[in-house]
């Protein structure tokens, strides 16, 4: 059995190979790591060749693989498939990788599943767990191999005791680019790692009417050493932040999550469920976030925020003076 690991970025690929080895060790499978020449830098490829505990690194080579293109990358993977017929393709769950995985699924007629949380292989059957209905539910699926999946979170503390073969092969592949032309690219600065590692997060929702109101939030966050972010609506429609919290954005797991003026759409809620404590400060008692909070303050946001900011500031200044 062969598990093929593919990612659109190097950090995720390293984690993916480690996570796949957890499964591969149990069932005696080989791990193949697929790299795209020109897309990965030469020094990155050298690092991966020397550090990845994998059976085979296959470098797919074609000048069209220089820039990410789902058509080009999935076609390139076809040549690899024809030669090795892997049983399982494991991708990371970035938007680019998901697109690549689905294209590959279509071309190979092998079913795919995205954003897989857990997987097990039992007697050639694949048992897969994923979020359902915004992540408020969890669904378990059963399917056969071959299969294609994107893995949501490949963090693992597992260390394989097997020393894998680490063979290297460069494979010149046929490919073609899509007929979609990119006119312009604007870089964003989503604070993914900051939010994923934050102990306290204050997140704001659509009940906050004006971006200037964020001044209170930042004052409070400053005292708590908290990260500030928002719901998808405020990020994508109002452009207050470059990222948002939720299953379609960043999933977080702080000690304390403070949701201010958040209605609690299921996709947002599912992204905060791993928080140790959730404090909801809301105007509307019917807000869905209330059903998932540890502490609930139902109040007028525009009355509480100035008072709270003032109190926090006072306490902070007192603390600074004393220390």
């Amino acid at each position: 059995m062969i598990i093929a690991c593919i990612s659109d970025n190097i950090e995720e690929l390293i984690k993916l190979v480690k996570k796949s080895s957890e499964i591969a060790d149990q069932i005696g499978a080989e791990i193949h790591t697929i790299l795209f020449k020109y897309y990965y830098k030469e020094d990155e490829i050298e690092i991966l060749k020397s550090s990845l505990n994998t059976d085979r690194i296959i470098l797919l080579s074609n000048i069209l693989l220089m820039k990410y293109d789902s058509e080009a990358f999935s076609l390139a993977l076809m040549d690899y498939y024809k030669k090795y017929k892997p049983d399982l393709f494991v991708f990371n769950s970035s938007l680019a990788s998901k697109e690549m995985a689905v294209k590959l699924s279509s071309k190979l007629n092998i079913p795919a599943m995205l954003d897989v949380k857990e997987l097990k292989i039992l007697d050639k059957k694949l048992i897969v767990k994923r979020d359902f209905a915004g992540g408020v539910y969890e669904a378990t699926y059963e399917t056969d191999i071959p299969f294609i999946l994107t893995l949501l979170d490949s963090e693992t503390s597992y260390i394989s005791k097997l020393d894998r073969k680490r063979e290297f092969e460069e494979m010149v592949v046929n490919t073609n680019v899509s007929r979609v032309l990119i006119r312009q690219t604007k870089k964003l600065n989503p604070r993914i790692n900051e939010l994923k590692n934050a102990k306290v997060i204050i997140s704001v929702g659509e009940a906050l009417k004006d971006k200037n109101d964020l001044k209170y939030i930042f004052e409070i966050a400053n005292f708590l050493k908290a990260e500030v972010s928002c719901t998808r609506f405020l990020s994508t429609r109002k452009k207050w932040f470059d990222e948002w919290i939720g299953v379609s954005g960043i999933r977080v797991s702080p000690k304390l999550y403070v949701g201010i003026g958040i209605s609690g759409e299921p996709f947002h809620i599912a992204g905060i469920l791993k928080s140790e404590k959730i404090l909801a400060i809301v105007t509307d008692p019917e807000s869905n976030i209330v059903n998932y909070a540890d502490y609930i303050a139902i109040c007028d946001l525009y009355k509480i925020l100035p008072v709270l900011a003032k109190k926090v500031k006072k306490k902070y200044e007192k603390f600074l003076t004393e220390s």
Binding site: V136, Y137, A139, T140, Y141, I278, Y295
Partner: peptide
């Protein structure tokens, strides 16, 4: 090719205070 074996609500132990 893909069968759903179960769909379960993720139980939350929240104080809701």
């Amino acid at each position: 090719k893909i069968k759903i074996s179960s769909i379960n609500k993720i139980e939350q132990q929240r104080e809701r205070k």
